[in-house]
């Protein structure tokens, strides 16, 4: 970690101005930023601390939806009674992420901006080639240890998995990222790597995430987040699914379905093909399993991550059946 100057922002505008300077980075909970600085991946010249800004940590929930300030802690949102009742998948995605200590530090806005766990990305001293870190340098992961890498949305330039849980739930329920007045759908906020894996988010220099809103929906109310991993806690997903269902009045026919996958793609992955295949159908295990296979349409593995192609549809199917069967 190299020396940097520290600047405490006392207004959002000041934060925007400071963040626009070359080499400046915002500091929220610091659990990604400090970690990557220690790895030598981020080398900020100026750290702009936004944690003292007032009013950015509110959590407001009403019949239209939830509005969550960028500085709300992961643990506060996970434990919020209205989030639990109206957006169970969001609460579950949060409390299954990271560890209790990290969740107490980490913020909602910072969470969206977390970086990949690709081991090559995190070790510049040993692996100089990484297109995400230094564009055009190549990709050390391809041909290397790929057990955790993505099978969906990859490119020749980068196969790094988007590791987060929360954003997976957010894309399922059409959340919106508020950058001050500018609003971006979460689904558009995360970019595919393509030829420019260094560009991960639709956010410009000097922009600050101020809040995330999630529109209320029946599907969000009846939702779950299922995270599968070798270790029971404190591990990123081998595969995960955020699922919400709204039934017709008969209680069996699917009116609305939301499915998103985590841990298997280069960005939070909405599985609209699965949704479309089941909407209007009666919830039935075989049909669900068949439709869930559509989640991995176009998937390509790099050897050791092949299991994700097997695993992901099973996780989707289990999650759909789980929310579908609960009264």
């Amino acid at each position: 970690m190299r020396d940097f100057s520290y600047l405490r922002a006392n207004s959002i505008d000041a934060a925007r101005q400071a963040a626009a300077l070359p080499g400046a980075m915002l500091l929220a909970g610091g659990t990604t930023l400090i970690d990557l600085a220690k790895c030598g991946v981020t080398e900020p010249e100026t750290v702009v601390d936004i944690t003292h800004l007032r009013g950015l940590d509110t959590i407001a929930v009403d019949d239209r939806g939830a509005m969550i300030g960028a500085l709300a802690r992961m643990s506060s949102v996970a434990d919020h009674a209205d989030i639990k009742s109206r957006f169970p998948a969001v609460s579950e995605a949060l409390w299954q992420a990271a560890s209790a200590q990290l969740r107490n530090m980490a913020t909602f806005g910072g969470n969206l901006m977390q970086r990949t766990r690709c081991p090559y990305f995190r070790d510049p001293a040993n692996f100089p080639a990484c297109n995400k870190r230094s564009p055009g340098s190549g990709c050390s992961a391809i041909g290397g240890v790929t057990r955790g890498h993505a099978v969906l949305g990859t490119s020749e330039a980068c196969i790094a998995t988007y590791p987060g849980d929360l954003a997976t739930a957010l894309v399922a329920f059409d959340a919106i990222v508020h950058l001050g007045d500018r609003q971006v759908a979460v689904d558009d906020f995360f970019l595919l790597p393509g030829a420019t894996p260094d560009r991960e988010h639709a956010i410009g220099p000097g922009e600050v995430i101020t809040a995330i809103s999630i529109p209320a929906s029946a599907a969000a109310r009846r939702s779950t987040y299922l995270k599968v991993r070798d270790r029971q806690s404190y591990e990123f997903a081998a595969a995960s699914a955020a699922v919400g269902i709204e039934f017709e009045a008969d209680g069996r026919t699917i009116r609305d379905l939301r499915v998103a996958l985590g841990g298997v793609a280069t960005r939070p992955w909405r599985a609209r093909a699965v949704e479309d295949a089941l909407k209007g159908k009666v919830l039935e295990p075989d049909a669900v399993r068949r439709a869930s296979l559509l989640a991995i349409e176009g998937a390509a593995d790099h050897g050791a991550n092949h299991y994700k192609i097997e695993l992901a549809p099973r996780v989707v199917a289990r999650a759909i059946l789980k929310v579908g069967e609960t009264a």
């Binding site: 081991p119 041909g143 290397g144 270790r231 029971q232 806690s233 404190y234």
Partner: peptide, 25 residues
């Protein structure tokens, strides 16, 4: 300990990636 076989290097050399049992396990 997972070895990158091209570089002969352990790539999961930290406690987020080298998994030991947690209380939940």
């Amino acid at each position: 300990g997972i070895v990158d076989r091209r570089h002969g290097r352990i790539v999961n050399n930290n406690l987020a990636d080298y998994l030991i049992a947690t209380n939940a396990d």
